[in-house]
């Protein structure tokens, strides 16, 4: 069986990591992402940007992964943002009200810009 889910990450700046999630994120693959995110956070990253350009499917268990970390990150001054969502994935995010909880932006750059603003605010 081929991997349903593939996860890559790219370090952008201090404490900022872009995580590219590809494939199917459901109850079976959610633990993989959870583990990956936990490790990323353990490395000291508190600004996480999820690029979901190539995410084909997300189930409620998959959505749960983000919820598991966001509160902790926000308490530490960090955040989770999403970029490049497909229409399909966005509509699911929208249904659950994720667009009200998270910043969902069209491009990585916009998300990074938002993070930098937040960093500035935090530093002030």
């Amino acid at each position: 069986m081929t991997e349903k889910l593939s996860i890559n990450s790219q370090k952008i700046g201090k404490q900022l990591e872009i995580i590219f999630v590809k494939g199917i994120l459901d109850a079976h693959s959610a633990p993989d992402l959870e583990k990956f995110v936990a490790e990323t956070i353990a490395q000291g990253n508190i600004y996480l940007l999820f690029n979901l350009k190539e995410l084909d499917y997300i189930s409620s268990a998959g959505l749960g992964v983000f919820m598991a970390f966001v509160e902790d990150l926000r308490n530490r001054g960090g955040d989770i943002k999403f970029a490049e969502l497909t229409e399909k994935i966005y509509s699911i995010f929208e249904l659950l009200g994720f667009h009200l909880i998270f910043d969902i932006v069209p491009t990585n750059d916009q998300a990074i810009e938002l993070f930098n603003q937040k960093k500035l605010r935090t530093n002030e």
Binding site: M67, L96, G97, F98, L100, I101
Partner: peptide
């Protein structure tokens, strides 16, 4: 209509949205 899933956000924000 707008509305966040139960237990995803703190109640003040949940109610607001």
């Amino acid at each position: 209509t707008n509305g966040i899933g139960i237990s995803l956000a703190k109640t003040s924000y949940f109610a607001e949205k």
